[in-house]
Amino acid sequence: MSLFSLLPGDSGLPEAPLCSRKGCRAPALWRLLWNNPKIHTPERRKTWLACAEHRGWLEDYLRTRLLWRETLPLTEASSPCTDS
């Protein structure tokens, strides 16, 4: 339990993962795995989450900068953690 779970209105249940696109509050359906070869080791993968609407936009953003590695579905078994 965190200190924030004691605040009024917090159920203490984990929230559903949300899309990483700025301002988007839609549920995430995809994991976009990426890394910056200038600062990350080759095996390191950072994760952005994407809804159906923003998957293409986020993929294009990462591909244009040569950062994109792969896109996988977000499932119950996959870890929804994100590194921005």
Rank of each mutant, 00 (worst) to 15 (best):
S84N: 12
W30Q: 03
K46R: 13
C19M: 05
L33V: 11
T64R: 07
S11W: 03
P42A: 15
W30F: 09
N36Y: 02
S5W: 10
A77N: 05
A26I: 06
L6T: 05
L18Q: 14
G56I: 09
L29E: 15
T41M: 08
E43C: 00
L7N: 02
P8V: 07
L3I: 14
R55D: 03
N35Q: 09
H54I: 10
H40Q: 09
R63D: 06
C19P: 01
D60N: 14
L13R: 12
W48G: 03
L74I: 04
W57S: 14
G56N: 13
R44L: 05
T75S: 12
W34F: 12
P73S: 10
L29C: 13
Y61I: 13
L7M: 07
M1Q: 08
G23I: 08
F4V: 15
A77R: 08
L74H: 01
T64I: 12
P80W: 01
P37C: 06
R45T: 04
A26E: 15
E70D: 11
P42H: 04
C51L: 08
W68S: 05
R44Y: 04
W68C: 04
D10T: 08
D60M: 09
R45P: 02
P14I: 08
L29H: 11
C51A: 11
D83M: 11
G9F: 09
T75C: 03
G9A: 10
A50E: 07
L58R: 03
P14K: 09
W30H: 11
L72I: 12
A16C: 04
S20R: 05
D83F: 11
L6D: 03
P37H: 10
E43R: 14
G23K: 11
G23D: 13
S84P: 13
P17M: 11
S11G: 09
T75I: 09
A28G: 06
N35Y: 12
P27N: 12
P80Y: 02
S79R: 04
